[in-house]
Amino acid sequence: MSNQGLGSYFKFNSVNWDDIWNATGETVWMTVISMILVAIFGIILGLILFETKNKGGFWSHLINIVVSFLVNIFRSIPFIILIVLLLPFTKAIVHTIIGPEAALPSLIISATPFYARMIEADLREVDSGVIEAVRSMGANRWDVIWKVLLPESTPALIADGTVTAISLISYTAMAGAIGSGGLGQLAYIEGFESNNNTVTLVATIIILLFVLIIQFLGDKWAKRCDKRNL
């Protein structure tokens, strides 16, 4: 690496802004698509974990053990290793191992268990008295899920979704190291391998802005849905 001073951060004329916009677009795309799918799968898995826990019955117990085990496994594998581990799987379902599409399977498989566990905890926070009240009205399991569990945990689901989305941005950057595209890859290829510190700084600032915006919107949204302290 050549000897560069602090001034190397501010050579903005060395930045190819088209590349930056493209990379920004890829990062946004990867984050948004994976977050939508993580939200869907996360809520399904979270509900399964919640509904099968301590409910008695052989099948509930079995499902809980299996899902719990898988969630724990995939939550424990470091993301950078998971991408590499899933390469054949990725190839099989998206037919490529480079570009933003190729990042999706590992992003989703990594973030879903993380979100599912948080959702399980959020559902447990729902007032059991309210669930009992609704059951006493003759509600079935689906009524309880749609009319009580999900609406009554919405602010927590949004807050935890925000945390998950921010982790996803960070994962998309890491996926850049093996060719997913996006700001992470730009910072790695342009910034690190070509010694362009300004690109790294710009990529950092854009990612930072995303994180701040997501956090801000997430907080606002969660607060809007929360009718507990009016």
Partner: peptide, 21 residues
């Protein structure tokens, strides 16, 4: 049983209303 439950109303110490509605 679910049909039978509809014929029995219940009120609670802590009201058990849904805050989201």
């Amino acid at each position: 049983l679910r049909i039978q439950r509809k014929k029995i109303g219940m009120i609670f110490q802590h009201f058990n209303l849904l805050w989201s509605r």
